[in-house]
Design a protein around this nucleic acid. Sequence first.
DNA 1: AACCAGGCCAACCGCCCAATT
DNA 2: CAATTGGGCGGTTGGCCTGGT
Length: 263
Amino acid sequence: MGRTSSCCSKGGLHKGPWTAREDALLVNYIQQNGEGHWRALPKKAGLLRCGKSCRLRWMNYLRPDIKRGNITADEDDLIIKLHSLLGNRWSLIAGRLPGRTDNEIKNYWNSHLSKRLAITKDNAGETKKESNGETSNTRKPTEVSSFCNDDNSSNGIGSELLLSSGNQGGEDGGSRGGGGETDQLGVNGDEEIIEKVKAGREELEESGDFFDGCEGLYKGLSWNGSENGERVDEIEDDSYQQLLNLEGEDYIQLESFIDYFLI
DNA sequence: AACCAGGCCAACCGCCCAATT
DNA sequence: CAATTGGGCGGTTGGCCTGGT
């Protein structure tokens, strides 16, 4: 892609790995003044870095709530499930893995999971061939085939809703355009689809069926902000195992649930 | 011991959106 | 309404590390 001029290339700013001294300066400043105002921060903190670089360093490495160490098997499984639902929306996935950063998850996916799943998929393909194309209506946790790109036949509601999530944007700053994602979600200002989705939502809200279904499924799960139809951005630690245990119809309902609240 | 290839991951990049001017 | 600014995102790079030869 080429690295041309950027904020970091302006007038003698440092690039590359951070030193311990720079880390200390950044941490001290944020502890005293809080996060934000990244563009002005470097000057005030006495750093020769651009604001974006400072923000990235803080968010991905210095934040006190960052969880260090290897991704656990539970987290691994949850990442796979969430990726199958959300695609490459790393920040959203990270939001459901307390202490993990989007960058970390993205790296983990690219270096571990994508390869592993490619192999799994290959094997599944061969198996499928052998069994003469018989398919299952149950989406297994590790059977990732980007939900967004599937035919989504398992769940009309969820898939339609997902279509509109691309440019509605929530506090995640909106799923970014930048190409891939918008295409992946099939959103390009198609008013007809959006109207269809809205109508579908209204219908669900009126009937209450959707919430009734979810209520049973998510009883006990600590979804933040799920009570009043608000977006769900984070999930409590102790909900992992319950999520991981979801399979079959329950898992399909989970897809619908997330799709709904991500709009 | 030296070299090489591949993997990992911190950091940078360009782009986008929302808020502000 | 247009331009600017600030913040955030996903994609990509490149240096370091490790294992194999």
